[in-house]
Design a binder for these strands. Structure first.
Length: 257
DNA sequence: ATGGCTGTCCCTGACAGA
């Protein structure tokens, strides 16, 4: 079983790339973030024609998340948003696929540590932590996939000194990431790769991708039951090389069946 | 370099992203 996450930065623009990528590298769950489209604008017909079904939580202009799965699977117990948290920003959707609870999340960016958006980020992180803790009481096989907007360690940044205590890697954000790990979740990428400069996002500007100056902020965290089945977790840089790419690239986890 | 690029919106400039 393969699970993947990809912040597409507009599904309207990136739909052909999503379909091409799925044709090249089929997965059993693809979590998408930053759809940037209203609920009614979701391209369900094209996705179904490609052999996939979908659950999505759309929003005009900003945010928006979706989970795609092959038509052979079901999307069970779909939950949009964080229950009990009246957040106008649509950043979370969850579904059970083939016995695995899949939570797709677009974490708050925060803009900068002195911004009101950063305070919202910390509040949102606390809500997410409580939600995941609650989900874990019911789902021993759970994966939390998405754009976390957190670089967990210095080796996940191209310039740790330049980024010191900036948004994406400030101590409170990293502590929130550690608390998610403390719930019993493992950063699946680091089960297989200990190298520094393994990035999932590169700024569009200044040829940052060609110079490999990026950050690793897209993650797949998994419970122990899934950890026992994990066979590989890779960052697929291929779509970042295509014409008019998203600034993020997919992360893919392979589990034994 | 408070810069560089990309996407969106009642669109030609502002906002957001990270």
């Amino acid at each position: 079983m393969k699970l993947a996450t990809w912040n597409v930065n507009s599904l309207k623009v990136r739909l052909p790339q999503v379909l091409q990528w799925l044709a090249d590298s089929p997965v059993d769950a693809l979590c998408l973030q930053e759809l940037k489209m209203d609920q009614d604008a979701f391209p369900l017909a094209e996705i179904e024609a490609a052999g996939y079904r979908a659950a999505w939580f759309g929003q005009k202009t900003y945010n928006g998340v979706a989970i795609l799965t092959p038509a052979a699977y079901q999307l069970e117990d779909v939950v949009a948003g964080i229950p009990g948290y009246d957040d106008p920003q649509r950043r979370v959707i969850a579904a059970t696929i083939n016995g695995v609870r899949v939570i797709c999340a677009y974490f708050v960016n925060g803009e900068s540590v002195d911004s009101p958006k950063y305070a919202y980020k910390l509040e949102w992180l606390a809500r997410m932590e409580a939600y995941v803790a609650d989900e874990l009481t019911r789902h021993p096989r759970l994966a939390l996939l998405g754009d976390y907007n957190i670089a967990p360690e210095d080796r996940d940044l191209y310039d740790p000194e330049g980024w010191r205590e900036q948004v994406l890697c400030s101590t409170p954000e990293r502590e929130a990431f550690r608390r998610l790990q403390g719930l019993g979740l493992t950063d699946s990428f680091r089960l297989f790769n200990q190298e520094e400069k393994q990035f999932s996002w590169w700024d569009y500007r200044a040829m940052m991708f060609r110079r490999n100056l990026g950050v690793r902020i897209d993650h797949i965290l998994i419970t122990d039951e899934l950890k026992a089945r994990a066979q590989a977790c890779v960052i697929d840089k291929t779509p970042r090389k295509w014409e008019r790419p998203s600034d993020h690239t997919p992360v893919v986890l392979t589990l034994a069946d």
